[in-house]
Amino acid sequence: MKRIAFVVAAPATAQSFLCGHIAELSKCYEVDLIANFSEGHHATVPVKNKIHSPIHRGINLWFDLIGLISLIITFTRKRYHAIHSVTPKAGLLAMLAAWVTCVPVRHHTFTGQVWATRKGFSRWLLRLLDRLVHGLSTYSLVDSHSQREFLLKEKVLKSEKSSVLLSGSISGVDIERFKPDSGKRETVRSRYGILASDFVFLFLGRINAEKGVPELLSAFRSVSSVYPSARLMVVGSDEAGMFTDGAIEMAFAGKLVRVDYTREPEAYFNAADVVCLPSHREGFGSVLIEAAACGVSSIASNIYGISDAVIDGQTGLLHTARSEEALTEKMLLMIGQPGLRSDLERRAMHRARTQFAASSLEQALVEFYNHRMS
Results as ranks from 00 to 15, higher is better:
141 L>F: 10
193 G>P: 13
172 G>E: 10
186 E>Q: 13
188 V>S: 02
178 F>K: 01
185 R>G: 07
148 R>G: 08
125 L>Q: 03
167 S>F: 11
160 E>K: 10
164 V>H: 08
138 T>E: 12
147 Q>C: 09
165 L>Q: 05
148 R>P: 10
186 E>M: 15
120 G>V: 05
186 E>W: 10
191 R>D: 04
123 R>G: 03
194 I>P: 03
179 K>P: 03
162 S>R: 06
197 S>Q: 12
195 L>N: 11
178 F>M: 07
158 K>T: 07
198 D>E: 08
146 S>C: 09
176 E>H: 13
139 Y>D: 11
143 D>I: 14
184 K>L: 15
194 I>N: 00
142 V>I: 15
140 S>D: 07
194 I>M: 06
185 R>V: 07
156 V>Q: 03
203 F>V: 04
148 R>M: 13
135 G>I: 11
161 K>M: 08
129 L>W: 02
118 R>Q: 15
142 V>E: 03
141 L>N: 12
131 R>Q: 14
136 L>D: 10
164 V>Y: 00
134 H>T: 05
131 R>T: 10
140 S>Y: 07
177 R>Y: 04
204 L>P: 02
122 S>F: 05
163 S>R: 00
202 L>W: 00
118 R>T: 06
148 R>H: 06
184 K>T: 05
147 Q>T: 09
198 D>L: 14
197 S>F: 05
191 R>F: 08
138 T>G: 09
154 E>V: 04
193 G>A: 10
135 G>Q: 11
188 V>R: 04
157 L>R: 02
124 W>F: 14
176 E>T: 09
204 L>W: 00
151 L>G: 04
199 F>S: 07
198 D>V: 04
196 A>C: 06
156 V>R: 03
124 W>C: 07
153 K>G: 07
203 F>Q: 04
175 I>G: 05
121 F>T: 09
146 S>V: 08
119 K>W: 09
163 S>I: 02
184 K>P: 00
129 L>R: 02
143 D>V: 12
187 T>W: 03
141 L>K: 11
157 L>F: 01
184 K>A: 14
136 L>P: 11
177 R>V: 11
126 L>C: 02
143 D>K: 01
159 S>L: 14
184 K>I: 01
120 G>R: 00
157 L>S: 04
141 L>V: 06
126 L>W: 00
189 R>G: 09
149 E>N: 13
152 L>D: 07
151 L>H: 02
138 T>N: 11
131 R>E: 09
178 F>H: 08
185 R>E: 04
167 S>C: 10
122 S>I: 14
